[in-house]
């Protein structure tokens, strides 16, 4: 059965791009969220296998959302999506329990590798 992914990103463009990458590679996109608050809600609602979490987002950023998701489900698999120059935040996220991270711009191969690895 294909793994279900929750995509969190405030830019629709990024969500669509990522969704496309995932769906073409055998993942199922269970849902999308545009900010941290939505991400936490959707996580509880959808119980996805993996979350891809953008770091810079309005309302609640990805690291905060990650922490909350981890508090709800300590086994949650969360992959951070970061842009260049956010290393400090990525490290914060790893400290907070992020499984891995992908750097934008998204490269299909890398994204899929990271997800495959995270699942195993």
């Amino acid at each position: 059965m294909s793994k279900r992914v929750l995509i969190v990103d405030d830019a629709a463009f990024m969500r669509i791009k990522l969704k496309d990458i995932l769906e073409k590679n055998g993942y199922e996109v269970a849902g999308e969220a545009q900010n941290g608050n939505e991400a936490v809600d959707k996580y509880t609602e959808l119980k996805p296998d993996i979350v891809t979490m953008d770091i810079t987002m309005p309302e609640k950023d990805g690291v905060e959302a990650l922490k909350e998701i981890k508090a709800i489900d300590k086994n949650a698999i969360v992959l951070m999506c970061s842009a260049m120059g956010q290393q400090t935040m990525v490290m914060d996220a790893i400290r907070a329990g992020a499984m891995d991270f992908i750097v934008k711009p998204f490269d299909t191969e890398r994204v899929i590798k990271a997800l495959d690895k995270a699942i195993n």
Binding site: D10, A11, F13, M14, A83, G85, P105
Partner: peptide, 29 residues
């Protein structure tokens, strides 16, 4: 401002628009 510049950079880089990505990156920095 930071967020908007950041989003622009990400999108430009993903589209392969290097000049735009470079400029937005400098602005963001």
């Amino acid at each position: 401002i930071f967020r908007a510049a950041h989003t622009l950079k990400g999108m430009a880089a993903t589209m392969g628009y290097d000049t735009m990505a470079k400029l937005t990156h400098a602005v963001e920095n």
